[in-house]
Simulated assay, not measured.
Amino acid sequence: MDELHGDRDSLAAQLRSLRLRRGLTLSALARHTSYSRSSWERYLNGKALPPRAAITEFAAAVGVPATALLIQREQEQDGRRPGSRGPLPHEESAAPGRHVPSEAPQHEGPAEAAPPSGPSRTRTALVSAVSACTALVAGILIGGWIFGGNEAEGQNREKARNEPQCREFECRDKDSQRTGCHIGAWTAAATWSGRTYIELRYSPGCRSAWARITDAHVDDTARVEGPRGARNERSVTYENDTYSPMVEAPYPASARACGVIKGKETCTSAGGPSPMPPALTDEREPARKPAPAGSG
């Protein structure tokens, strides 16, 4: 695969490796960032260099710091690769032992001695050493994140668990994954519409709720309804599952979830006070409960 896409140490190869470790599809990347599925296909296959903003959002989606990836992006934008020891682009340096040709034009007036070649070689060596050190640090950091990604992800989950990014009304219209509200969430109510599973997901840490539908079809809609007429919905655009943005819910019974499946609306009851078994706590792993017998 790397031979098809180019240099295995390229930025595109690093992005592909991180995406595969995270288990994200191109469609999932499009949902978690502000860039389309076709854009990520070009970036990950090396057809286009991703913008800095795309790198930052990608790093957040896969749970790693963005610094080393941004360093590697700048190197590739300048026409370099990590580990290169050559001078910076457009910088010329005299080869050891090279002298100014005697035919070089001279200014009128007193002759001026040519600058010594020693400082020039020192400057070139210094630039090359700095470039090599930067590439080495970037390679070590990226390698550590690729092979030690679980530790970085664990730290991110712990931070999200201890410091939710929103609470109650602050969570309205926001995404449960991007705010960390999906960590520790549980299913408070559920029902079926044919083979589609409809859930009311509840976050006690964020005191908010959202709807999730699984084994649905494109254009089917997940909708959550909260107190005082608050509601949010999202339709399936790729694959076969989706979840809505959040609404505030001070307690589970203050919200319910609905699914509009093939034009037919089906809603759960109000949320219960305790998790329904099995309690899934990660929106990256859609519920895969077996459909009830005779559900079609």
Score class of each variant (00 low, 15 high):
residue 140 I to Q: 12
residue 83 G to N: 10
residue 146 I to W: 07
residue 192 W to C: 08
residue 219 D to R: 05
residue 141 L to D: 06
residue 67 T to Y: 07
residue 68 A to N: 03
residue 263 G to H: 05
residue 43 Y to I: 04
residue 275 P to W: 05
residue 74 E to D: 12
residue 125 A to R: 14
residue 133 C to Y: 10
residue 116 P to E: 13
residue 256 R to S: 05
residue 294 G to H: 03
residue 181 C to I: 01
residue 80 R to K: 06
residue 70 L to A: 12
residue 114 A to N: 15
residue 64 V to C: 09
residue 57 E to I: 02
residue 80 R to A: 02
residue 268 T to C: 06
residue 145 W to Y: 15
residue 78 D to I: 07
residue 18 L to N: 03
residue 73 R to D: 01
residue 28 A to I: 06
residue 96 P to K: 14
residue 114 A to F: 12
residue 84 S to E: 11
residue 118 G to C: 02
residue 2 D to C: 13
residue 102 S to I: 03
residue 170 E to Y: 03
residue 219 D to Y: 03
residue 7 D to Q: 13
residue 263 G to Q: 05
residue 265 E to I: 11
residue 194 G to Y: 06
residue 144 G to W: 10
residue 48 A to E: 10
residue 26 L to C: 05
residue 110 P to T: 06
residue 154 G to D: 12
residue 247 V to C: 00
residue 124 T to R: 04
residue 159 K to Y: 10
residue 230 A to P: 02
residue 29 L to Q: 01
residue 168 E to L: 14
residue 235 S to D: 06
residue 285 E to Q: 08
residue 251 Y to V: 14
residue 96 P to T: 11
residue 150 N to M: 09
residue 259 G to T: 02
residue 236 V to E: 05
residue 195 R to P: 00
residue 86 G to S: 13
residue 272 G to T: 06
residue 78 D to V: 15
residue 226 G to D: 00
residue 112 E to G: 08
residue 86 G to I: 06
residue 143 G to W: 10
residue 136 L to M: 11
residue 196 T to D: 00
residue 197 Y to V: 05
residue 124 T to N: 04
residue 33 T to G: 04
residue 167 R to P: 15
residue 267 C to N: 07
residue 287 A to R: 02
residue 277 P to K: 15
residue 16 R to N: 14
residue 272 G to V: 07
residue 70 L to P: 00
residue 63 G to K: 02
residue 155 Q to V: 14
residue 22 R to T: 14
residue 249 A to E: 01
residue 97 G to T: 09
residue 122 T to H: 13
residue 177 Q to C: 05
residue 92 E to A: 14
residue 38 S to P: 04
residue 145 W to F: 13
residue 277 P to Q: 15
residue 9 D to T: 12
residue 56 T to P: 00
residue 197 Y to N: 04
residue 27 S to P: 02
residue 47 K to L: 12
residue 283 E to S: 09
residue 155 Q to L: 13
residue 26 L to I: 04
residue 114 A to W: 11
residue 291 A to L: 02
residue 72 Q to R: 10
residue 26 L to M: 07
residue 276 M to D: 03
residue 202 Y to K: 00
residue 28 A to H: 08
residue 258 C to F: 09
residue 68 A to Y: 04
residue 285 E to S: 13
residue 69 L to M: 03
residue 199 E to Q: 06
residue 293 A to G: 11
residue 31 R to L: 07
residue 186 W to G: 02
residue 258 C to P: 04
residue 161 R to F: 12
residue 50 P to V: 07
residue 146 I to V: 14
residue 59 A to R: 00
residue 285 E to Y: 11
residue 140 I to H: 10
residue 203 S to N: 05
residue 217 H to G: 13
residue 229 G to C: 09
residue 151 E to T: 11
residue 247 V to N: 00
residue 270 A to T: 14
residue 283 E to R: 13
residue 44 L to D: 02
residue 83 G to P: 04
